[in-house]
């Protein structure tokens, strides 16, 4: 590698600076000529204008030259683009899921990483990223890698949008959502951690083990992370987009049901209804933002179980 952060950097930046130089020359030329004319042909200096209607030769020149220049620019832009769209055969696949307002990265062995954990990849390895959205359009953007692709919800059977990259330098890089997706769009931030191959292998083994452990010990907590719930519901009592899950059982809440207020005590029945039909009862002070999730009855039970655990912790 030439030390660039990703394989696309050289192409994109070459195009960028090529256009930049052409633009700068044009701008300086035009502005310079305007300033020169203002001074030289000011009415004080030049009260009698010279009658010129046009000059065909000159007009042909400045039609032809820009045409040639823009074709060059087009060519180099296209060249870089084709590279971005051609995924190498041996690329490692990491599925990206996006929702309001979280990211999830799923590795081939089922390891899942959340927004907070970020996307961890080995250096000098092409990574293929199918992009899946569970709700609205997001955009997967790593500025340092010059990578961007919208994460568009697709109808059943349609091919997902994809992108790929090959990082060239270990380090941490910003990952942004670049398409407006609602209230917390500006907080839909994550990181890309690029590790050397050895570090990556070590990390990968560790993370996979930790996840397996969590899944067997507390399937509810694992679900909470993998479904992206913790993007909006904290487990420590702090208020995010939605109510915190801590100390929830037995709590008295005022909820809006079909526009009418009523007071309820949180129990299993209420939780089950809220998980299956999030818009049914909205706790006062919150927006009806939660999307309906496709959960199996077993998953619902696991989540309720975990919410119980969280409440017991509080009681202790």
């Amino acid at each position: 590698m030439n030390g660039a952060t990703s394989v696309f950097v050289s192409d994109v930046d070459f195009s960028f600076w090529l256009i930049f130089i052409i633009s700068a020359l044009c701008l300086v030329g035009i502005t310079g000529f305007v300033i020169f004319s203002i001074i030289k042909y000011n009415r004080k200096n030049n009260p009698e204008p010279t009658h010129i209607e046009g000059h065909t030769g000159l007009e042909i020149v400045w039609t032809v030259i820009p045409t040639i220049l823009v074709m060059f620019i087009f060519y180099f832009g296209m060249k870089g683009f084709i590279k971005m769209r051609s995924v190498p055969e041996n690329a490692m696949e990491i599925q990206v899921d996006a929702g309001m307002w979280w990211w999830k990265f799923t590795y081939p062995n089922g390891l899942e990483q959340t927004t907070g954990q970020g996307l961890t990849v080995p250096v000098d390895t092409p990574i293929y990223l199918p992009l899946h959205s569970v709700d609205v359009i997001h955009s997967f953007y790593i500025p340092a890698f010059r990578v961007k692709m919208d994460v568009v919800p697709k109808a059943e059977g349609e091919k997902l949008n994809y992108t790929w990259f090959e990082a060239g330098k270990p380090g941490d890089y910003d990952l942004f959502c670049a398409e407006y997706c609602g209230l917390n769009h500006a907080q839909m931030l994550s990181k890309v951690h690029v590790l050397s191959q050895e570090d990556y292998d070590a990390w990968f083994a560790e993370a996979s083990k930790a996840q397996a452990k969590l899944k067997s010990e507390s399937p509810g907590k694992a679900l909470l992370i993998s479904k992206g719930c913790i993007a909006c519901h904290s487990t420590d009592g702090s208020k995010l987009i939605g109510p915190s899950l801590k100390g929830l059982i037995g709590k008295t809440e005022t909820v809006l049901t079909d526009g009418a207020e009523r007071t309820i005590t949180v129990d299993d029945t209420y939780l089950r209804r809220s998980l299956n039909e999030p818009a049914a009862d909205i706790v006062k002070g919150f927006q009806p933002l939660m999307p309906p999730l496709p959960l199996t009855p077993q998953e619902v039970d696991d989540l309720i179980q975990y919410i119980h655990e969280l409440s017991e912790e509080t009681a202790e």
Binding site: V134, D135, E277, A279, P291, L293, P294
Partner: peptide, 11 residues
């Protein structure tokens, strides 16, 4: 159901 986002709905 009216008023709900339908995007995640399984047909």
């Amino acid at each position: 159901a009216a008023g709900e986002g339908s995007l995640l709905l399984n047909p």
